[in-house]
Simulated assay, not measured.
Amino acid sequence: MGSVKTIVVVGGGYAGINLIEALKKEFHRELKRNIRVILIDKNSFHFKKVKLFKGIVNENVADLSVPLKDYCGIAIEFIQGELAKIDPKKQTIHITVQDGTFNEIYYDQLVLAMGSVLREADSERGGLSMTSLESAKTIREQLLRKLESPETMLRLVIAGSGITGIETAAEVGTWLKEEAKKAGNKQKDIEIYLINDKQSLLNDVPVKISERIESRLKKLGIRVLHLKKAERFTDHKLYFSDMSHLDADLCIWTVGLKPHPGLWRLGLSLTEEGKIKVDAWYRASENKNIYAIGDCVHVVDPTSGAAAAMSCKEAISQAQRLSKIMKAHIEGFTAAPHQTYANLLCIGLGPSDGMVWAQKWGIDFVLSGKMAGKIREYTWDLSSINH
């Protein structure tokens, strides 16, 4: 293979850690000899953000953070720092380390796996955005105080009905009822509303699957309000764009993801949404030695024309495919391009329930109940490589 090749991976999210794992397998004989791999992240840990709602229902959530060195082992180097600049001509990056100084690192291949951040509702809209472990803990504390209050009813609204909103509603709803029983407050009337601005839940799945999910939510006492766009929460009222309102004790915003804001300063071609434009081999158009995968990229399946979604399953699939593309590039041939992940949904509906939907040959395969819940737990572990 010749001289040592340096691969730099920026980002220790789901795409980054799964790429590191895939590179270990692809280059297991060459690592430390002909291939040097460096992982860079501003944090020292990988955070399981898809399970952030666990910070509301569990007091101890230490397992949501995994040291990135655990993924690297002895074969991969880890540097804690933040990407500040890319110099494609020199094939170097500048990173800011903890003491504020800059380090310059040379690369033969650079992978940007900087992912996404949780969107935060504007502060003037009121309520609480679930964007961090700290915010989840704040929500937990406020809900527990509401449970202890003398009022006979607690009404919680969750504005945002994507997978995160649905899973949060189901998990928090179950937890609140259990906490009320523990406190001997069985008379507490707990109401949870999930606000959906569309015709049905999860537009990427068939309507009948959306209806089944909503049916299971109803069994948990969760009511879905369709075609309602939440605007602001003030004075214990959630106001909608149609000028109507809903009385509530607390509002949680779960308004989705946005590409990492740090991408704007790197001088790469971005979409209006802020994603890196890449070709079907995940290469940035400016330089064929720069790749990008995960939530931070706009990549299109060359066969179907479908753009990749922002999801863990896409991140894992792209990471595994990119490791083969990178090895092929080093060895002088071309590997298979991007392919959109198959139609699949795994969703948690509380601590002991879930739904799995897959579509193949136009046929829907559906599993729900405890087994589906266990599969969802398995997919969470799989995304973080079961650490």
Rank of each mutant, 00 (worst) to 15 (best):
G332F: 00
C346T: 15
V255D: 01
V255H: 03
K218W: 01
D204Y: 10
K32S: 14
M355S: 10
N185G: 05
A358T: 15
I316P: 00
D63F: 12
K218E: 08
K313F: 07
K327V: 03
A342E: 14
L217V: 03
G81A: 09
S3N: 14
V297Q: 02
E272D: 15
R145G: 00
P337V: 11
L202K: 06
V255E: 06
Y378N: 10
F47Y: 15
M355C: 08
C296E: 11
S129R: 05
N287Q: 02
D353K: 01
K208D: 14
M371L: 15
K370R: 14
N43S: 14
G362H: 05
Y107N: 06
V278P: 02
Q199D: 15
V117P: 01
M1E: 06
N18R: 05
A136I: 01
L133T: 10
G274P: 03
G2V: 09
P150S: 10
R216S: 07
A358F: 09
L367W: 11
E167D: 09
A328Q: 03
L110K: 11
Y291N: 07
L344R: 04
I7V: 10
K24S: 06
G81V: 01
V4L: 12
L31I: 14
H260Y: 12
D235I: 09
L266W: 02
G354F: 04
L31D: 10
E151H: 11
M371D: 13
R29H: 11
S304W: 05
Q109I: 01
N343S: 14
G165M: 00
M355W: 04
H236M: 10
P150D: 12
Y193P: 03
G126L: 04
I222Q: 01
P206N: 01
L263P: 06
L52S: 06
N185A: 11
W361E: 13
V61Y: 13
C346W: 11
S132P: 02
V117A: 05
L39V: 12
L19V: 06
R119A: 10
N203Y: 08
M326L: 10
T6L: 05
R223F: 07
A292L: 09
S311N: 10
K182F: 07
E124H: 13
V37I: 12
G256M: 07
E167H: 08
K51V: 03
S304M: 07
D301N: 07
L23P: 05
D247K: 13
K370N: 13
I213D: 03
I316V: 15
T168C: 06
S3F: 05
R321C: 04
Y107M: 06
L83H: 01
A328P: 02
V207A: 10
Y71H: 06
I105V: 12
G369K: 08
V37Q: 11
K48M: 15
N203R: 13
I86W: 07
K177T: 04
Q339F: 11
V366Y: 03
S317N: 06
K24Q: 09
L257G: 04
C296Q: 12
E141Y: 05
F78I: 02
F233S: 09
K32G: 13
L349W: 02
L128S: 13
P302T: 04
P337F: 06
E77D: 13
C296H: 12
K69V: 13
E331G: 04
K374Y: 06
K198G: 09
L64W: 00
V37D: 05
L246S: 06
G11S: 08
